[in-house]
Design a protein around this nucleic acid. Structure first.
Length: 484
RNA sequence: GGCGGCUUAGCCAAGUGGUAAGGCGACGGUCUGCAAAACCGUUAUUCGGCGGUUCAAAUCCGCCAGCCGCCUCCA
């Protein structure tokens, strides 16, 4: 069928064909490292992680570049405020970022370049732009001349006339045109700087991404991604800088993800509702967060609230529970030759879903369909081997299921029985009763029940319930879990 | 003001011309001493409203209503 991707540049789904057959160059705007990462960052990173994983699974040789912006006004301001060296601050948050990404099960990109490691690339790119009269120097600053690049606005769909009349563009004495933007900023007193042909200073925000992406992927590459807010001005400016400098088409496919809202409100520092990844993961399993982030289409807005994240956790448990049932069926082995459609077609249907602009909600629906089919076999077969498919085909189902759920979506990494056990016991440390005491009471109740003393058994069950402990009686005896 | 997007069951959410995926919840059932958990089943004659195009529309076009994003640092 072939991969189709919605391209912001053309506003259409287009068939994906890389510049060099079999190889993909992908650049995604990373984070400015001045604070902890929030759930909005998580959405973007997880989306492109899934895209990266899918391209790899499709057989492409992928060079995936995700940068760190480690020099910027926000970093300098924060460092000054905290009395910390700006470089130390940036390094500190790069480490924190990596901790969060590892926790989220995000695959490391091929290259994670830092802006400050690429000053020579940035300088030569700026020099080229000045030579071609696409940029000019004023008092140690270098500005890009927007009017020198006629396609300006092609990504965001903006017309330069509209932008000029929109009164929100800063008027700056140094700019020949209000739309011009800084490529190089002259250092103010006490600010970090690098030497340049225009004096000491530091790179503007947009130029670093042009420099780093072209450094690793060439002047024309396949995919560039980021949050939808970066479309303008950041990505628009990247196109202008890069294409003005090289005369080549910069990027084939622009992919932008939608925003995460918090309880129907925009997440912002002023509203005080910014949710850090670190804090969320104290309450929520990382895979549940991934499932949540992938449960609606990547371009749609996504609302984070107690219900939505709870649903994701429950859904994940459902998948693990089916995986456990599948493993039991494999161990039992059977004689049935055919598989239900939900299991035999899983691979090709999942691929179709992903090929259709990375339709992860549809993919998840297929995984739930497969889960139900597995559970149905499990429930109907019982101990009868004549109702269970043969071992080999069940093993193929598991391979396919994990091939997509695990390799591509980054879910179902754990052994199911361990996952389910942990999910049941999570939060036990916050209770007013020790684990040993719980175990003792459960044991006491089991003995009472064995003696048909159900009155005492129920009494103990109620007592434990007051502590927030639920008893579950199964064929292998009684177990307990923390009530939600 | 300019540009773009969205509106599908109680809630979340796929579906861009061929007659409504999936999840949560709710309800019914299996299991159980009774529960719980798990599992199974049921749950939109209809896609914001009104017109139009078509053999056929949630899907295309027009108008109206409501919501949202970007235009300024932002994933």
């Amino acid at each position: 069928m072939g991969l189709k991707i919605y391209n912001t540049l053309t506003r259409k789904k287009e068939t994906f064909e890389p510049v060099h057959p079999g190889k993909v160059g992908m650049y995604v705007c990373g984070v400015t490292v001045y604070d902890m990462c929030h759930i909005g960052h998580a959405r973007s990173v997880v989306l492109f992680d899934v895209i990266y994983r899918y391209l790899l699974k499709s057989g492409f040789q992928v060079t995936y570049v995700r940068n760190f912006t480690d020099i910027d006004d926000k970093i300098i301001n924060r460092a000054n405020k905290l009395g910390e060296n700006w470089k130390d601050l940036a390094e500190r948050f790069i480490k924190e970022f990596s901790v969060d990404m590892d926790a989220l099960g995000v695959k490391r990109p091929t290259i994670e370049p830092k802006a400050t490691d690429h000053i020579p690339d940035i300088l030569s790119l700026i020099s080229a732009l000045i030579e071609e009269a696409h940029a000019y120097e004023v008092d140690g600053d270098v500005m890009f001349s927007v009017s020198s690049f006629s396609p300006y606005g092609k990504l965001s769909g903006k017309k330069t006339e509209d932008l000029v009349s929109g009164a929100r563009v800063d008027v700056d004495e140094k700019k020949k045109d209000p739309l011009d933007f800084a490529l190089w900023k002259a250092a103010k007193k006490g600010e970090p700087f690098w030497n340049s042909p225009w004096g000491p200073g530091r790179p503007g925000w947009h130029i670093e991404c042009s420099a780093m992406s072209m450094r690793y992927l060439g002047s024309s590459f396949d995919i560039h991604g980021g949050g939808s807010d970066l479309t303008f001005p950041h990505h628009e400016n990247e196109i202008a800088q890069s294409e003005a400098a090289t005369g080549e088409s910069f990027v084939r496919f622009w992919i932008h993800n939608g925003f995460v809202n918090i309880r129907s409100e925009k997440m912002s520092k002023s509203l005080g509702n910014v949710l850090n990844i670190r804090d969320i993961l104290k309450e929520v399993h990382p895979e549940a967060l991934r499932l949540f982030l992938l449960s609606s289409h990547y371009r749609s807005p996504l609302d984070f609230n107690d219900t939505s994240i709870r649903e994701a956790s429950v859904g994940l448990e459902r998948m693990y529970s089916a995986l456990m049932a599948l493993e039991e069926l494999i161990n039992a082995g059977g004689i049935v030759n055919e598989l239900p459609e939900e299991l035999s077609d899983l691979g090709s249907k999942f691929e179709d879903a992903m090929d259709d602009d990375f339709n992860t909600p549809k993919g998840l629906a297929l995984l739930f369909d497969a889960s139900r089919a597995i559970n149905r076999i499990h429930a109907e077969a019982g101990p009868n081997k004549d109702k269970i498919p043969i071992k080999e085909s069940l093993e193929n189902v598991k391979k396919t299921l994990l091939g997509w759920a695990n390799e591509v979506l980054g879910l179902l990494n754990e052994a199911p029985e361990i996952f389910i056990e942990n999910a049941r016991r999570s939060g036990a440390k916050d209770l007013n009763i020790t684990k040993e005491e719980i175990e003792r009471l459960v044991q006491e109740r089991s003995e009472a029940r064995k003696a048909k003393n159900f009155k005492l058994g129920d009494e103990i069950r109620n007592r434990l319930l007051e502590y927030g402990i639920l008893i579950e009686d199964g064929p292998k005896g009684s177990t307990w879990r923390v009530r939600d």
